[in-house]
Computed example of a mutant assay.
Amino acid sequence: MSFSLNDLPLRADLVGEEPYGAPQLDVPVVLNVNENPYPPSPLIRQEMAAAVVRAAGGLNRYPDREALGLRTDLAAYLGHGLTADNIWAANGSNEVMSHLLTAFGGPGRSVLTFTPTYSMYPEYARNTFTGYVTEPRNPDFTLTADLVLDAVQRHDPTVVVITTPNNPTGTSVGLEVFEAVLAGSDAIVVADEAYQEFSGRPSALELLAESPRLVVSRTMSKAFALAGGRVGYLAAHPAIVDACRIVRLPYHLSAQTQAVARVALAHADELLAQVRSLAAEARSFEAWAREHGYDVVDSEANFTLIGRFPDRHRVWQDLLDRGILIRETGPDGFLRVSAGTPQEMNLLKHALEDLDPTREGSRP
């Protein structure tokens, strides 16, 4: 019997939708999802393995549903006088955002953000029945307080999400923008700082003590080389943490996840040393790209937008044919490149140099 998704009583707003996700292809050079290319060291892996073995001794019991040990360690890592009461941890920053919109969004409410930005935001809104409204960034992809406040006044959102550094552009937002929005609105204001460790700018954490409606969202996927561990977290007033606790699924972080994340935090200094080298690699690639005639968006993250390509998909395919996977995302005519190892970046540079300049889309 023939049976497909079309035969199911799918929600009307999901008909025709495709699952989110960048390509996962087995190629020699993977530079498409802003991962940290350096795995934890053998010593750290050994400690993680031992921590998982210890956790396995209690796998017949549910894990600590409050993840208090992990939240305490995250608070110590962030500093700023934070305690476990200020921290919420979840299955990646994706689940953090889902918790926030489940708690503060919903029918009749909206979330405002500024494009181009992270492509999962509309899906968080859709899944929580929250209205999704956007305004364009400045032509250089920056944000000013006036631009954001004007959008807030016109749309009256319940939640405002400001990504800094922004994905996919890598541009950062100054603290004065957050201060202005917090002063001029009653909305929950989310500073999505997934790539903050790669930036040299002050964090919105500096504003938390005096800002009970501010949320600072982070992830361990990038800086801590823990993309496979699936740990995201937020720092906020304890009342916001309590709101997330209401809507979370029971036991949403496994005992193994909590154990591995705590080992990573115990080795923060070693893991963050790779962050500095990745940021330097990204800036070096940007300098190379400019020298070779590409348009480059100034980035403060571990990735770079280069263009402009009349046919960016053809360039993407040309590179993939050479075993190099980058991301076809962001503004028209641009491609996003994650920072990799020096060897990976050299292979990318050679491939870009070798592309046929007479072929449409192969060169800017």
Results as ranks from 00 to 15, higher is better:
Val189Ala: 13
Phe114Ile: 00
Leu10Trp: 01
Glu210Trp: 13
Phe141Asp: 04
Ser119Leu: 08
Ala204Leu: 01
Val159Tyr: 03
Thr83Pro: 09
Pro157Ser: 07
Arg137His: 08
Phe309His: 11
Ala236Phe: 01
Thr304Ala: 15
Gly79Lys: 06
Gln274Lys: 12
Ala273Leu: 10
Pro202Thr: 03
Leu82Pro: 02
Glu17Ile: 09
Arg71Asp: 07
Thr72Lys: 10
Arg61Gln: 15
Ala266Asn: 09
Leu8Ile: 10
Tyr233Met: 10
Arg201Leu: 15
Ala145Cys: 03
Arg283Lys: 14
Phe303Cys: 09
Leu348Gly: 00
Thr144Pro: 09
Trp316Thr: 05
Phe285Met: 14
Asn32Ser: 06
Ala183His: 07
Glu344Lys: 04
Glu328Cys: 15
Ala261Leu: 12
Leu70Cys: 03
Leu355Gly: 10
Met220Ile: 08
Leu74Gln: 08
Thr72His: 00
Ser254Phe: 00
Thr169Ile: 04
Arg283Asp: 14
Leu325Arg: 05
Arg276His: 15
Glu300Gly: 08
Pro331Val: 04
Asp295Trp: 13
Glu291Trp: 02
Asp146Ser: 07
Pro331Tyr: 13
Leu265His: 08
Met97His: 13
Gln46Ser: 08
Val247Gly: 04
Leu147His: 12
Lys349Gly: 01
His155Lys: 11
Asp354Gly: 10
Phe3Gly: 11
Leu8His: 06
Pro122Gln: 01
Val27Ala: 02
Asp186Tyr: 01
Ser110Pro: 04
Asp7Val: 09
Arg71Gly: 04
Gln256Asp: 13
Arg283Asn: 14
Arg137Thr: 04
Gln153Asp: 14
His292Gly: 13
Ala90Val: 02
Pro202Cys: 05
Arg276Leu: 14
Phe3Met: 13
Pro168Gln: 10
Ala191Arg: 05
Glu328Asp: 15
Gly333Trp: 07
Arg290Ile: 06
Arg54Gln: 11
Val275Arg: 00
Leu101Met: 07
Ala180Leu: 06
Thr102Pro: 03
Asn167Thr: 11
Leu253Ile: 15
Gly79Tyr: 05
Phe178Ser: 03
Leu74Pro: 13
Ala67Gln: 00
Pro63Asn: 11
Asp7Arg: 09
Glu17Thr: 14
Leu265Gln: 07
Gly131Cys: 01
Leu100Val: 10
Thr142Lys: 05
Pro364Met: 12
Phe3Cys: 09
Pro63Asp: 11
Leu143Pro: 12
Asp73Val: 00
Glu360Tyr: 13
Glu206Ser: 15
Pro23Asp: 11
Val216Gly: 00
Thr329Trp: 01
Ser199Val: 05
Ser217Val: 14
Ala191Ile: 03
Ala268His: 02
Asp298Ile: 09
Leu182Cys: 06
Thr130Ile: 00
Tyr20Asn: 05
Asn34Ser: 12
Gly229Leu: 13
Ala89Phe: 08
Glu286His: 12
Gln317Val: 15
Leu347Trp: 09
Ala339Thr: 01
Lys222Ser: 06
Ser119Glu: 13
Leu31Gly: 02
Ala268Asp: 06
Lys222Thr: 04
Arg230Asn: 15
Glu193Leu: 08
Thr329Asn: 11
Leu25Asn: 02
Gln24Lys: 14
Asp311His: 12
Phe141Met: 12
Ile188Cys: 05
Asn6Thr: 05
Pro238His: 03
Asp318Ala: 14
Pro122Phe: 10
Thr158Ile: 06
Leu74Thr: 01
Gly228Ser: 09
Pro357Lys: 04
Pro310Asp: 15
